[in-house]
């Protein structure tokens, strides 16, 4: 469905006094998102995961690599015809409060893209009303109650469902969920995650799930892959459960150690790990990018750059010279 090969993106800014500042947001990311599949990208703020989502939806350009959608390499497609490819990839934004126009009713919010889509496909616009109701039912809302309402009359969870329904108006094949549940009340999060999982199984929609909250990545359904991204580079990837249960890269281990422990129901993992320092995206090094924060870094790590691969008899791919599985994730006690 989507194949990304070695995508890079570098931002250069020039301040009047500070000189040129270069931020490598993505340093060669590749992945394959199959039809109906799910790939999650996790990492802390500033790791490039949002840039990746923007590139895939055509909201941001990339300076190196290839993006293949439905078997077509996008750089071979003229600019004006790319829209039809990006139509298949829709974004669900983080903040359902600002993603909807407050002056328009749900009816209007869904109606416009539906009419546009009807013109494209040559369908009659008369079907628009039925289709809007159908989509709302699909996302678990009651059409008659919701259609005449303005966004402020809905709860956060309901608003996010409207955002998802709007993304579905143009018949997408891929949904990109960038922190889609982090602004929503904890009690409503599983409902949204369950809906995304449903869309995968019922409509065969592929899901690219971007988040800093590793626990939510477990809820997007079977066959999911987890990619851990650090400073624009994937440093560990594999089946979601494998990476969570036996992570081998110290950065992944730090991320997993940071997940709150439900004391009384869970016990902290015995090998919990904390990074040595805060993220500084300006440091340049020929070695491992994580080495300055890594408790286990040695001379080789600061001198040589590890590449993603399967070494050390580990099931998942990783970019670490010293891959050691550690028990960092909380353990259930009841």
């Amino acid at each position: 469905m989507i194949e990304a090969r070695n995508i890079t993106r570098t931002y250069r800014t020039r301040g009047a006094f500070t000189g040129e500042r270069v931020v490598q947001a993505l340093r060669g990311v590749d992945f394959t998102l199959p039809r109906g599949g799910a790939v999650s990208f996790i990492g802390e703020s500033g790791c490039g995961k949002t840039t990746l989502g923007k590139i895939l939806t055509g909201l941001e350009t990339f300076d190196g690599g290839e993006l293949v959608v439905d078997g077509v390499e996008l750089s071979t497609v003229p600019q004006r015809r790319r829209a039809s490819y990006f139509r298949r990839i829709q974004m669900i934004h983080q903040d359902p409060y600002s993603a909807l126009n407050p002056t328009r009713t749900v009816d209007q919010i869904l109606g416009d893209p539906l009419r546009m889509r009807a013109r494209q496909t040559g369908d009659r616009a008369a079907g628009v009303v039925d289709r809007a109701a159908e989509l709302l039912e699909l996302v678990g809302l009651e059409p008659d109650g919701v259609l005449p309402k303005y966004p402020h009359q809905l709860s956060g969870g309901q608003r996010q469902r409207v955002v998802i329904a709007r993304a579905l108006t143009v018949d997408p094949e891929v949904l990109i969920a960038d922190e889609a549940v982090s602004m929503i009340d904890v009690s409503m999060r599983l409902g949204i995650l369950g809906l995304l999982r449903d869309l995968r199984t019922r409509l065969g929609i592929s899901l690219l799930f971007i988040t800093h909250d590793v626990a939510t990545a477990r809820y997007v359904g079977d066959g999911g892959e987890l990619h851990v991204i650090y400073r624009g580079e994937v440093i560990e990837r594999g089946p979601t459960d494998t990476v969570i249960q036996s992570p081998v890269h110290p950065y992944t281990q730090c991320l997993l150690s940071a997940v709150p422990v439900m004391r009384g129901l869970e016990e902290p993992g015995p090998d919990r790990l904390v990074p040595l320092a805060a993220l500084d995206e300006r440091t340049r090094t020929p070695g491992c990018l994580f080495a300055p924060r890594c408790p286990f870094a040695d001379e080789r790590c600061t001198a040589e750059h590890p590449v993603l691969g399967r070494t050390g008899g580990v099931e998942q791919e990783h970019a670490c010279f010293h891959p050691v599985p550690r028990r960092v994730v909380a353990v259930e006690t009841v």
């Binding site: 999060r189 369950g194 477990r218 869970e266």
Partner: peptide, 15 residues
């Protein structure tokens, strides 16, 4: 309804 790192994901559900 809390997304957790342990436990069965199927038994958890939203309010």
């Amino acid at each position: 309804a809390t997304a957790r790192i342990t436990g069965d994901t199927d038994t958890a559900r939203a309010l």
